[in-house]
């Protein structure tokens, strides 16, 4: 667990797109709807940069509700939030696999 006022590590920056509300992840160069593209902060300096970017992107009217989320890596090395709330946020409603990001990823994974 992160200490007070300390960003969680390792972590990614998660937000909702201002226009359509979709969950987005901060990448090295912008925002992506895919968690696999997320830039992972492994150290405090990178996490601080992501925090600064959260504030800046909010000011630029790109996103809303931007915050850092602690992650672990899955077998393929992709970031997976450690908390169930954020996992649901990166996937979609758990009772509706046909909706949310999981819907787009499931067929792709099956191919």
């Amino acid at each position: 667990m992160a200490k007070p006022n300390q960003p969680p590590l390792p972590s990614i920056l998660i937000a909702n797109d201002l226009l359509d509300g979709e969950v987005l992840f901060r990448t090295v160069s912008g925002w992506s709807p895919a968690v696999a593209d997320a830039l992972v902060a492994e150290d405090l300096a990178t996490a601080r940069q992501l925090e600064a970017e959260a504030a800046a992107a909010t000011r630029r009217q790109e996103v809303v509700d931007a915050y850092l989320v602690e992650i672990a890596r899955d077998a393929a090395g992709r970031p997976v939030p450690t908390h169930y709330r954020e996992r649901i946020k990166t996937l979609g409603p758990s009772h509706r696999p046909d909706l949310g990001k999981q819907a787009a990823e499931a067929p792709a994974a099956g191919r």
Binding site: N16, D20, G21, E22, V23, V64, D65, R85, I88, K89, G92, P93, G100
Partner: peptide, 9 residues
Amino acid sequence: GVYLQLHAY
């Protein structure tokens, strides 16, 4: 009536 929820508005 517009809220921001987990996945969307």
